[in-house]
Write a protein that binds this DNA or RNA. Structure first.
Length: 603
RNA sequence: GGGCCCGUAGUAUAGCUUGGAUAUCACAGAGGCCUCCGGAGCCUCGGACCCGGGUUCGAAUCCCGGCGGGCCCGCCA
């Protein structure tokens, strides 16, 4: 077979299938009209199954259309098949049962797909900036100590989503919202504002008996976060201490924080962000909650909420909102706006934050754990109360639990920390690398191991649908085979190795004719051609796990091709196959970029 | 008690938005593959839609009711 490579034009739609599907829909609408069956293009598109039965087929089930005209679907399929006739790029149409199957000319799709990838390179499947700006807020963990991997699920989902939205043509700004004025922030400052020798015995004991952390001195946020869970427990039984923290909290709100306060939060946060950098996550903006107090926006929100239609004054002076009209559970039909002492609460300050987001971004996305679901609905009610018509979109994910049952808890000692998981993954990756390579120097081995470990951790978490809870198991998280990050990176490294050995003739942008016919070659092209569609889907639905699944399919198709088709030793097909390998490598590279994983030339 | 989410082979997971042709993929299990380019790979086999109703020509998918698990129901965040 021989196919001309179609250079990618200035089309904004990066989907190689687009012209074929457009032609197909037109042909179907015409055929329906000829049969006097009412069917619009939109109806055809909605029924169209692009994944089809066999890999190359686009299928149209006819049950729905048959019903509206009272004919048998099988009979309708036969009739339509006669009328669809021929249109550009159609290799054949067939009626199978109640389905109409269309096959695109393989040569056309091969040429078009490879042409698209080879000319666009790392921009393959990307859409030119077209949408409005999007703000993605994710992670937003309080600066109270190191991340356990439950919290990291938020960061990985949010970061992946941000990357995909950018690829789909939206300018994205990521936010990490830091609570530096609430009770938790006050607790950290309270305990560290006294010398350790002066700490209450329970807290000192707790810290000294907690499992030792060899990295505590190395990572300041680990050390500074150590007393937090014990402080939290201590305050429940010591009202005097609790009052001291409350007083500190009031000072924070009033803008008269002790001098060490911000530095502490900053120090812990810096350590936490350092952990996230290990898995390639960084933020465009760090947003401090205190900034909405100092700029007066919280005060303005409070004024608006106190004059809102359902504002209620409690006897003790607190202000609340009756939200029973918003369909919230009746137990939470009252939300507090300000405490009896006049100070604000998290949900009130969050309204101010969201108003500031709406001022800059037409689209606002919040990534939240399932425990914040009610808060999300409360926030919507509060926005409605002050007459704000806009709403954030919420991406809610379920928790990561431990095999013994329950969530990750620092206090119960059931938390698995990101740093620990990465450290362990790095050790294992090093062993794997050393067993394969003797020529690499130590720094290279270390860098590769970090990349493999980070990829393994990110992939392990992102591959599961956000609305499913995950039970954490070390052996699964550290698996380097099958549905794992290293499986993808290995495919990339294999392809890189091929292209390295091929030498100069891998620059094939000007390759005129492609000769590919092996089923595994066609299957690989088919998967490559699905990438733009997949990115568009993820951008629309925020189902980031779909991209992880796609990337696995892509790598798998390559491994199969690699196994069954020789490349370097091929004679006639060598150039074509190298072009295919190049296109594959770039497509998988785009996936790795979007999943926040490193492209490894060797591993 | 009320609300939200989840329930697919031994384990894990896709498909559920918009019902449609033999339900995806992995780990574990059994059996194979380095005459070629990286065996972190490939091939073959066996194995699943929580239960009960309903809607429909057709239900893993939609509706109702159970059961099981997670989370929330603070003048915490």
């Amino acid at each position: 077979m021989a196919a001309g490579v179609e250079p990618a034009d200035a089309e904004s739609d990066p989907d190689p299938w687009r012209p074929f599907v457009d032609a197909l829909v037109r042909a179907c609408v015409d055929a329906f009209a000829a049969e006097k069956v009412p069917a619009t293009a939109a109806e055809v598109i909605s029924q169209l199954d692009l994944e089809g039965g066999a890999a190359w087929d686009v299928a149209l089930p006819l049950h729905r259309f048959a019903k509206t005209c009272g004919r048998k679907p099988e009979e309708l399929a036969q009739a339509l098949c006669q009328r669809v006739g021929e249109f550009r790029w159609l290799a054949g149409a067939s009626a199978v049962g109640a389905y109409l199957n269309f096959r695109a000319e393989p040569d056309w799709l091969i040429g078009r797909t490879l042409g698209m990838v080879l000319s666009r390179g790392a921009r393959y499947a990307h859409t030119e900036v077209s949408g409005g700006a999007v703000c993605v807020e994710h992670t937003s963990s309080n600066p109270t100590g190191p991340f356990h991997i439950g919290r990291v699920r938020n960061a990985i989902i949010g970061d992946t989503l941000a990357r995909v939205l950018r690829a789909a043509g939206s300018p994205v700004t990521t936010h990490y919202y830091i609570d530096d004025v609430g009770r938790q922030a006050a607790m950290i400052t309270w305990i560290w504002s006294m010398p350790q020798s002066g700490w209450p015995e329970e807290i000192r004991d707790g810290v000294s008996k907690a499992p030792p952390r060899p990295d505590a001195e190395l990572r300041p946020h680990v050390r500074l976060g150590r007393p937090y869970p014990f402080v939290s427990a201590y305050l429940k039984t010591h009202p005097d201490a609790a009052e001291a923290v409350a007083e500190l909290s009031r000072r924070l709100e009033a803008g008269s924080a002790p001098p060490e306060h911000h530095a502490l939060a900053q120090q812990i946060l810096t350590g936490m962000l350092g952990s996230l950098e290990r898995i390639r996550i960084a933020f465009d903006e760090l947003v401090w909650e205190s900034s909405f107090l100092t700029d007066g926006s919280v005060e303005r929100v409070i004024q608006r909420l106190r004059t809102a239609p359902h504002a209620v004054r409690e006897e003790n002076g607190a202000w609340a909102l009756d939200t029973s009209g918003y369909g919230l559970p009746k137990e939470s039909s009252r939300v507090i706006v300000t405490r009896a002492d006049g100070t604000s609460l998290y949900q009130t300050r969050d309204v101010a934050y969201h108003l500031s987001k709406f001022a800059s971004f037409p689209r606002v996305i919040d990534v939240l754990g399932q425990d914040h679901r009610l808060h999300a609905r409360t926030l919507e009610a509060m926005l409605a109360e002050i007459g704000e018509p806009r709403r954030p979109e919420f991406v809610i994910y379920q928790y990561i639990t431990v095999p013994e049952g329950g969530g990750m808890s620092t206090r119960r000692g059931s938390a698995i920390y990101l740093d620990d998981l990465l450290d362990e993954a790095v050790e294992r990756a090093k062993k794997e690398v050393l067993s394969r390579h003797t020529e690499l120097v130590e720094t290279e081995v270390a860098a590769i191991a970090e990349s493999v470990a980070a990829g393994a951790v990110r992939y392990h978490i992102v591959r599961v649908a956000p609305d499913k809870s995950v039970t954490f198991r070390w052996e699964d998280a550290l698996s380097f085979e099958g549905r794992s990050g290293p499986f993808l990176q290995y495919a990339y490294a294999r392809a890189s190795s091929l292209l390295r050995k091929a030498g100069e003739d891998s620059s094939l942008q000007r390759l005129g004719v492609v000769k590919l016919s092996h089923p595994d070659e066609l299957a690989l092209v088919q998967v490559i051609s699905r990438l733009p569609r997949t990115i568009a889907y993820v951008a629309r639905t925020a189902h980031v796990h779909t991209l992880a699944g796609y990337a696995h399919d892509l790598a798998e198709a390559f491994h199969r091709f690699y196994q069954s088709v020789p490349v370097l030793t091929a004679v006639e097909e060598r150039a074509s196959r190298l072009a295919l390998v190049t296109a594959f490598r770039e497509s998988l590279g785009v996936c790795l970029d979007l999943l926040g994983m490193d492209r490894l030339e060797r591993m």
